[in-house]
Design a protein around this nucleic acid. Structure first.
Length: 449
RNA sequence: GUGGUCAUAGCUCAGUUGGUUAGAGCGCCAGUUUGUGGUACUGGAGGUCGUCGGUUCGAUCCCGAUUGUCCACCCCA
């Protein structure tokens, strides 16, 4: 028997880790709920034809595929296939790659039962056959929220408020909400007279953070843009805080282009909805986001004092359900938190240090077998009062039982032995300050706080 | 998919210029204290040095492969 192990890029979450993860998860979930989002869950596996072709070539290669059951090669002439054409014959299901495509599939399937606008959130793991590295796992959790069936800019404003609320609650202070507009990017390409290179250009400028302005210029040259064109693109890469003035500046620079009007209109509406609260919002001309289903505003959130990729991303898309054959146009907007990266960021910033996780509030410490029976109804009383309560399962030495309470960060130890049982009492010890008192069982629960 | 890094106790890591018995700290178990914890002291368990193969009289150490790790690129949360 070889040493036990888990697959590459996956992790176990110990109780200690889970209590921290739960804190993040619960925070995000409660904020989503406070904005009226409803929960959706979809299966871990989808039909492979639901998934393939939605993420581009790169994405398709990163899909985990599930082998068919039974004798899946019985009727196949293996020599007639190469590994690529064989795959669809022997694997018809795959693990989900994100939560957006399953959402689109769900909406397409249940369009008649859904009333729009449809606001759903979804917190589930996704899988990518990527090579793991810092902040990148093969199994990780996404926390998505999407609004479908409205193109109001109020949604964008809501999501910005959600970002601000979540990060405030988590204690993350140094971050930047980067925002851009697909139409602004289009206008830039139009201005530079390079519309036909739109997709390539977005991919290149998205790397600006990493390779710098010079690097971007070099790569733009590489795809055949001349110096004027490159300069036109570069002139729009700078980051500025989002404001009426910034927008006006862009409008002026890009006047005469087809796409700029829509971007300006959207930004101005968004600013109006956000009111004065434009804190931490940066208009970043270089933000592009690879996924090409985005059509309007796009977001990305990055921590500014930790070296880490984006911890959230999202944007507006015009017609997500189109590929599933839905005739009526369902536009929408969504964001996604990557809680694994959030976790890494918070761990690095030591934001969990303040919290001591306690796995129970009360531990009953029976000194002999008879005491266990005596404790049972008392423990249930504690639970009814809302305390996490357990009874040590054997009459071990007190030291051992108190040690156990310490490691689980339990505040109250309730010691029960012969003398307590005789008098109908319990001894309650506060493990934080060390005080101990013996009181009547009638109202002992009231002594716990 | 490409390039690099590393792999020794449960964890973090020493160490052996190739040689008899591979160490520390933390953690774990027990005792000092047979009903009073978090501190202290004492003792104990736990490793075929990732796996397979090669070189050698002899390999944890050198070489090769393999698996895993971490990091960077591509792409992305």
């Amino acid at each position: 028997m070889s040493k036990p192990s888990i697959p590459q890029g996956t992790r176990d979450f110990s109780p200690e880790l889970m209590s921290k993860r739960k804190f993040i998860l619960n925070t995000i979930e409660s904020v989503y709920q406070s904005f009226g989002f409803m929960q959706l869950e979809t299966p871990a596996m989808e039909n492979l034809n639901t998934l393939t072709g939605k993420y581009g070539n790169e994405g398709d290669q990163l899909l985990f595929k599930i082998l068919n059951s039974g004798d899946y090669i019985k009727d196949l002439d293996l020599n007639a296939f190469d590994s690529k054409s064989l795959t669809p014959k022997i694997a018809e299901k795959g693990l989900r790659y994100d939560l957006t495509v399953p959402l689109a599939r769900f909406v397409a399937m249940h369009r008649h039962e859904i009333s729009f606008p449809f606001k759903r959130y979804q917190i589930q793991p996704v899988w990518r056959a990527d090579r793991p590295q810092k902040g990148r796992y093969r199994e990780f959790w996404q926390c998505d929220a999407d609004v479908l069936g409205t193109d109001s800019l109020l949604c964008e404003a809501d999501f910005i408020k959600i970002y601000q609320t979540v990060f405030a609650k988590l204690g993350i202070q140094d971050y930047e909400i980067r925002i851009n507009h697909r139409k602004l990017l289009e206008a830039v390409c139009e201005k530079a007279d390079a519309k036909q290179h739109f997709k390539t250009i977005t991919i290149i400028i998205d790397k600006a953070d990493k390779i710098g302005v010079d690097g971007v210029a070099r790569e733009l040259n590489g795809i055949g843009l001349n110096e004027t064109q490159v300069q036109t693109v570069l002139s729009l890469l700078n980051k500025k805080s989002l404001s009426i003035e910034t927008i006006a500046e862009f409008e002026q620079k890009l006047s005469g282009t087809e796409s700029i009007a829509k971007a300006v209109e959207d930004f101005n509406k968004l600013i109006a909805f956000c009111g004065a609260d434009l804190n931490k919002i940066v208009l970043d001309g270089s933000l592009a986001r690879g996924l090409d289903y985005y059509t309007g505003c796009i977001f990305e959130v990055v921590p500014t004092n930790v070296k880490m990729g984006s911890i959230s991303g999202g944007g507006r898309y015009d017609n997500l359900t189109e590929v599933f054959g839905l005739k009526e146009k369902v536009s929408g907007i969504g964001i996604s938190f990557g809680i694994d990266r959030l976790f890494d960021v918070m761990e690095e910033l030591q934001l969990f240090d303040g919290q001591t996780s306690s796995f129970a509030d009360v531990l009953f410490c029976p000194m002999d077998e008879a005491a266990i029976n005596y404790c049972l109804p008392l423990a249930n009383q504690c639970r009814e009062k809302g305390y996490k309560t357990e009874i040590y399962p054997s009459a071990s030495k007190l030291k051992k039982q108190l040690d156990y309470a310490n490691t689980k960060n339990i505040k109250w130890a309730i010691i029960v032995g012969d003398s307590e049982i005789e008098k109908g009492e319990v001894s309650i010890k506060n493990l934080v300050d060390g005080n101990q008192q013996t009181i009547d069982i009638e109202n002992f629960v009231n002594s716990i706080y």
